[in-house]
Nucleic acid binder design. Structure first.
Length: 434
RNA sequence: GCCCGGGUGGUGUAGUGGCCCAUCAUACGACCCUGUCACGGUCGUGACGCGGGUUCAAAUCCCGCCUCGGGCGCCA
């Protein structure tokens, strides 16, 4: 739109054209105020019955909330105007009228349930604190990419329609691919590994994953966005270093570039960039510390998965991001390498936020024979994964990597109560639309 | 997959057998109001998820269905 001025850029003394949504109309009788909102903020338009054209006043005050209008007029300083500046209109044009009854209230006077908000996400995102979450999410992704470039990695994109899953099992969405059985990919795991053996060596991908688990919790999605990293000639400790770098960079980026958004969310004081290195606890230490908290009815023993309650108890105890390393091989996937000389101890690691798991990674099994044996031990048919395993016969370097859930990163960073708040259009057990 | 708890005007809620032709806020409509900033004031419109049952009487109790949310398992 030619000559449009954003509300944030309106200066007294100028003739401006502003465009946006009718946030509110306050009609005091002889004088009335229309608050116009755009992506940068709000500005007051003042209407005076005695001094202005009746049609102009009629148009300005007759328009329903959330209609889209454009206003041209003189911007003037006024001590009583919000922000100190207001526009006296010469013309008002209604570009798009809104129905008067709104499915939710973008001015935020009345709360709406998350489900109502998600059904009307466009209106929901007119609220600046909701918009702030997605501005921050975008900054997280920008900073994460920057961190990956620092690490000398190359961004890749791998297929989301696949013939086989990553680990087999039942958690895949089946689809029909020209009459053949296919699936939505649950992880770029196998593809990114194939790329560390290519000339690229160090890669990352930010993309969707699909999981058909019928869980119903505030921390699971059936379509999520994963940040995946994989590097040749890295062991699991170097992969953890990279993970720490990326996560800290995301926090740094938000701290540096999203102060306004953090204020809108009331987090300007609570938001903290993790400053220390993330503690690295072994699995053994983790279960001992959980047991020592006394929060669990039954003591954990070697080989147990960490129950949600245990994770939370440990998170409270540690109080910051931390790694859990050296998991029992039996509860980590087949493509994670065991420690040399101890087949029961894996190089797999998880990176935890005090309230939940954010990252899962490890050094990978790069030896062809061990890999094929691993498939068989998981009850999978190695022949089905031939496209993957055969590349391990032609010089697959030792390598390590991890995957980080974007929504969980944003959720924990901002203290959101429900992961769906960190996705524009979440896909969950009961939501397929919009 | 197992388990638990909800569904009341557009939105968010109060109401646990008769006090309810249902409360409050906001929105919406009408009127009043010349500096509001969640403007204020007066009046008004508007709802018990669906189906069946119990009872003299059901928003309220029971059953089924639909739907939403949560806990566990598992995971990012």
């Amino acid at each position: 739109m030619d000559g449009r001025t954003h509300t944030v850029d309106v200066n007294p003394g100028e003739t401006v054209t502003v465009a946006g949504w009718v946030h509110e109309v306050r009609d005091l009788g002889g004088i009335a105020f229309l608050i116009l909102r755009d992506t940068t903020g709000k500005i007051q338009i003042v209407f005076k019955e005695d001094e202005m054209d009746a049609d102009l006043v009629g148009t300005g005050l007759g328009v329903a909330r959330e209609s889209v209008i454009t206003v041209t007029g003189d911007a003037e300083e006024h001590s009583n105007a919000p922000g100190g500046v207001e526009v006296t209109p010469e013309s008002v044009e209604v570009l798009a009228e809104s129905d008067t009854e709104l499915p939710l209230d973008p001015s935020g006077k009345v709360d709406a349930d998350l489900s109502t908000r998600l059904d009307n996400r466009t209106l929901d995102l007119r609220k600046e604190e909701v918009k702030a979450i997605f501005e921050i999410r975008a900054e997280v992704l920008r900073s994460v990419r920057e961190a990956f470039y620092d690490l000398g990695s190359t961004e890749i994109n791998t297929p989301k329609i696949v013939a086989t899953g990553t680990e087999g099992g039942t958690e895949l969405f089946p689809i029909t691919y020209f009459g053949e059985e296919a699936f939505m990919n649950q992880s770029p795991q196998l593809f990114k590994q194939l790329m560390v053996g290519s000339g690229l060596e160090r890669v990352f991908e930010i993309g969707p994953i699909f999981r058909a688990e019928e869980h119903n919790t505030p921390r699971h999605l059936n379509e999520a966005t994963m940040i995946d990293f994989e590097s040749a000639f890295f062991d699991h400790t170097e992969a953890m270093d990279a993970c720490e770098h990326v996560v800290r960079n995301a926090y740094d980026g938000v701290a540096a570039n999203c102060q306004r958004e953090l204020e809108l969310l009331g987090l300007e004081d609570a938001f903290e960039v993790p400053d220390e290195a993330f503690p690295r606890l072994t699995y053994q230490e983790a279960i001992e510390r959980i047991n020592a908290t006394g929060e669990l009815d039954e003591q954990l023993v070697w080989g147990d998965d960490l129950p949600t309650e245990g994770e939370r108890a440990l998170g409270d105890d540690v109080g910051s991001h931390y790694f859990i390393t050296d998991w029992p091989s039996e509860i980590k996937p087949f493509y994670i390498k065991d420690h040399d000389g101890d087949a029961d101890l894996s190089t797999g690691f998880d990176m935890m936020h005090p309230v939940m798991e954010l990252v899962s990674g490890g050094q990978r099994e790069h030896r062809y024979d061990h890999l094929v044996t691993g498939f068989e031990q998981q009850g999978l048919d190695p022949d089905q994964f031939d496209y993957y395993t055969k590349m391990f016969k032609y010089g697959m370097p030792p390598h390590a990597g991890w995957g980080l859930g974007v929504e969980r990163l944003v959720m924990t960073m901002l203290g959101l109560e429900n992961i769906r708040e960190a996705v524009l259009f979440p896909r969950d057990r009961q939501r397929l639309s919009p």
